[in-house]
Design a protein around this nucleic acid. Structure first.
Length: 452
RNA sequence: GUGGUCGUAGCUCAGUUGGUUAGAGCGUCUGAUUGUGGUUCAGAAGGUCGCGGGUUCGAGACCCGUCCUCCACCCCA
């Protein structure tokens, strides 16, 4: 006999766990709808051509690829087979892959359905994504993302709304968080000022590590990418930036005085901070220049949300992308979006034990009986309850009473209706409150009344 | 992809310098109690000691390989 198992980095969810997860999904969904977002879904698999090249070199490696059907080696030459070049070979034997995130499939969706959509288009999407990563703390190979995006609007009001959504969702979930924000244009400006415009990716990746490895190592890494000592010297005041958000912006204005993009980024952030203040966003927002985010399609604001009371990677992240639809042939459509990592939120909630006492008990009443006759007697009662929208079930075979009562107990069913000959003769059931132990003979009307 | 770590019953874990038939608690099932659960008592079932090889008279324990778990790096939700 083989031992049952599931693939690395995947999980089963028990009824209890699903109740907790649904609490998260429902909270998120409620807030998304409150802001006028509508749900879509896209397939688990996309054409590899849609996915490849959108997430950088690292991302491509982390794509799960799906083997072609049929005898896919038939069309291969011996050279290709014996060449042992997995990348070349992959292109020949795989044309589909599992989705890596929800943003790129969404961009594809927008382009494909552009004539049916009215812009600005506000959509949300809650589906699993897959990454061929090494699993570790807070990292899975299959996990749910909850995305909200607006496309077809440049307005910074969209950035504001996303921040308000973050604020509201974490307030409802009772998780204390900090929103970190940055702007890709500021990073571009910095690269421009120090004369290394093409090295922007290398610089941002290095800056991103500031928290982890410190100033000295960041400088070393930047230097190792072939950036001049002079440029690195110019970079220093930026890396050491401190103070409140507005103080930081003020300093940046001086440093970036000669960079048009840079100043644009600063003014965008000023606007966003102003809007958040005006709308009294409660969550603290922190301008964090070390926030770079690897995904290479962001062009404006970049967000990341971290939980304060728990050691965990970012639980939400996103940003503005000005031309993601461009690669699919639809130019000039700007989008901004943010993604909630449901599984990390789930882990945070588990660690802090923040679940409400809510209805884990889903069945309100269980019918317990002693024989075939009693079972038949119960069926109309069940129908009557269910018609009224009351969750009711019956133990489907005449098992020992102890067994049936334990079933109710384990499932945390609050009421049990006991049916034997006495009850049938009177046309009633014995209703027992499992918490208090009280019980009484009741008619069908009285029973239904009880649950209203 | 790199480095480390773990693996014994459904779950959480003991298992001495290598030595008879591998244990406990929880859970499950049965009975005490043929119409009353959550408490108690008695009993039972449940193991290829992750898998493969090696050392040895003898391996759960030691060695090698492999898979898996968890953690860190990379990257990210």
């Amino acid at each position: 006999m083989q031992k049952p198992s599931i693939p690395k980095g995947t999980r089963d969810f028990t009824p209890q766990e699903m109740a907790n997860r649904n609490y998260i999904f429902n909270t998120i969904k409620d807030v998304f709808r409150l802001y006028g977002f509508q749900q879509i879904e896209t397939p688990a698999m996309e054409n590899l051509s849609t996915l490849m090249g959108k997430y950088g070199e690292e991302g491509d490696k982390l794509l799960f690829k799906i083997l072609n059907s049929g005898n896919f080696v038939n069309g291969l030459t011996d050279d290709e087979l014996l060449g042992r070049n997995s990348i070349k070979l992959t292109n020949k034997i795989s044309e589909k892959g599992l989705r890596y995130d929800l943003t790129v499939p969404f961009a594809r969706f927008v382009v494909q359905h552009q004539n049916e959509i009215s812009f600005p288009f506000k959509r949300y999407q809650i589906q699993p994504v897959w990454r061929a990563d090494r699993p570790q703390k807070g990292r899975y190979r299959e996990f749910y993302q909850c995305d909200v995006d607006v496309v077809g609007s440049d307005s910074l009001l969209n950035e504001l709304e996303l921040i308000q959504i973050v604020d509201e969702i974490y307030r409802r979930l009772k998780i204390k968080v900090v929103i970190k924000i940055n702007n890709r244009k500021i990073l571009s400006g910095i690269a421009e000022i120090i004369g290394e415009a093409e090295k922007i990716t290398d610089i941002t990746v290095a800056i991103d590590k500031m928290d982890k490895i410190g100033l000295e190592k960041v400088n070393e890494e930047i230097a190792s990418k072939g950036i001049s000592a002079e440029a690195i010297a110019k970079l220093q005041p930026i890396l050491k930036l401190s103070g409140t958000n507005s103080e930081k912006l003020l300093q940046l204005k001086t440093v970036l005085a000669n960079s048009k993009v840079g100043l644009k980024g600063v003014s965008e952030l000023e606007t966003i901070f102003g809007l958040c203040e005006a709308m009294k966003v409660k969550t603290s927002i922190e301008l964090d220049l070390t926030l770079a985010r690897g995904l290479n399609y962001y062009t404006g604001a970049i967000f990341e949300v971290k939980a304060l009371d728990v050691e965990m990677g970012s639980i939400t992240g996103g940003g503005r992308y000005d031309n993601l639809t461009g690669v699919f042939g639809m130019e000039g459509v700007s989008g901004v979006g943010i993604s909630f990592g449901a599984d990390r939120i789930y882990d945070v909630l588990n660690q802090l034990d923040l679940y409400p006492e809510t209805s884990v008990e889903q069945t309100k009443i269980l019918f317990v009986s002693f024989g075939e006759k009693e079972l038949m007697y119960c069926l109309p009662w069940l129908s009557a309850l269910r018609t009224k929208g009351i969750n009711a079930e019956i133990y489907p075979e005449p098992a020992k009473m102890k067994k049936q009562m334990s079933y109710a107990d384990n499932k945390k069913i609050p009421f049990v209706a006991i049916v034997g000959e006495t009850e049938m003769n009177e046309g009633k059931v014995m209703l027992k409150n499992m918490k208090t132990g009280e019980q009484a003979l009741v008619s069908q009307e009285e029973l239904i009344e009880k649950f209203h």
